[in-house]
């Protein structure tokens, strides 16, 4: 896997969709050329002492020919608010690509079960699987219709996209995990990736432990460096003592190997 670079990069475009989520397209050729599905970047758009640390974001898509990559950022606190106000042409400092790229694509059918900013994490994987002509079924969940994230991209790279909303404003009125269970019963998927909801993570882990699917989690965790220097991003191992580092051993983990917070 290519070692990460630290570069001053340029913001090519910024678009809000849906409200509170910003798609940033960033020019940095080496990252665009070496990034793989599952990898992330550490981003700093400031020279301040507060915020001071860079922030981790998944690489939504990378275009090696154009030398650009895309992030989808949900405004949460200080850092993401600053990033959401950057003007086109602004400079950002990026380190990446970081984390392990997903390299196993031998499933007969893959389900992507995502909610909120978690949708951003799986687009690259969906694109890769589609290029390999592997079936992809996406279950995109949100509180309401207007909060569905990365919808157009996921529709482009999935055989089917199932929408689930908590209030029933679109698609299935209820829990996205019901749709997943149905897909498994129909024999369409043997592998599941999930991101963006603890409830989803617990459900996928239970299915994995029951031997019904191979379950994978995209994990988040407070990060200082993103590259193994600080040991800040620990997640507890399941079945043995000790911790993994999300930035070095992940961010994607087989669900049965890690403890999922309740």
């Amino acid at each position: 896997m290519a070692a990460p670079v630290y570069r001053k990069a340029t913001l090519v475009s910024r678009k809000e969709n849906p409200k509170g989520y910003f798609h940033l397209v960033i020019r940095e050729e080496q990252i665009a050329q070496t990034a793989g599905p599952g990898q992330f970047v550490m981003v700093r758009g400031w020279h301040t002492g507060d915020p001071i640390l860079p922030r981790p974001f998944d690489i939504v898509l990378a275009d090696p020919l154009k030398g650009v990559f895309r992030l989808c950022i949900k405004v949460e606190g200080k850092g993401t608010r600053l990033l959401s106000t950057l003007k086109k042409g602004s400079s950002l400092y990026v380190t990446g690509p970081l984390g392990k790229s997903i390299t196993e694509f031998d499933s007969s059918g893959t389900a992507l079960l995502v909610r909120g900013a978690g949708a951003a994490a799986v687009v690259f994987l969906a694109e890769t699987l589609t290029k390999l002509k592997k079936p992809v079924f996406t279950i995109l969940s949100a509180s309401t219709k207007s909060r569905l994230v990365c919808r157009a991209l996921l529709e482009e790279f999935s055989n089917d996209v199932f929408i689930a909303t908590d209030d029933g404003t679109e698609g299935y009125h209820g829990n996205g995990t019901d749709i997943l269970d149905q897909l498994i019963t129909e024999g369409k998927v043997d592998t599941v990736y999930t991101c963006g909801s603890h409830r989803f993570a617990r459900h996928v882990k239970a299915l994995d432990l029951a031997g019904k699917v191979k379950g994978y989690l995209f994990l988040e965790g407070y990060m200082g460096c993103g590259m193994g220097d600080c040991h800040g991003c620990a997640v507890k191992k399941d079945g043995e003592d000790g911790y993994f580092l999300v930035c070095m051993d992940g961010p994607v983990f087989r669900s049965r190997t890690v403890v999922v917070d309740s």
Binding site: G49, P51, C230, G232, K236, Y243
Partner: peptide, 23 residues
């Protein structure tokens, strides 16, 4: 040694707190 349970770090103005626990 395994080190401390997460969260192990927290950003503060112009700095950070760490409780890594030397794994």
């Amino acid at each position: 040694r395994p080190g401390n349970p997460p969260p192990r770090i927290w950003e503060t103005p112009c700095g950070m707190l760490n409780a890594i626990g030397i794994p």
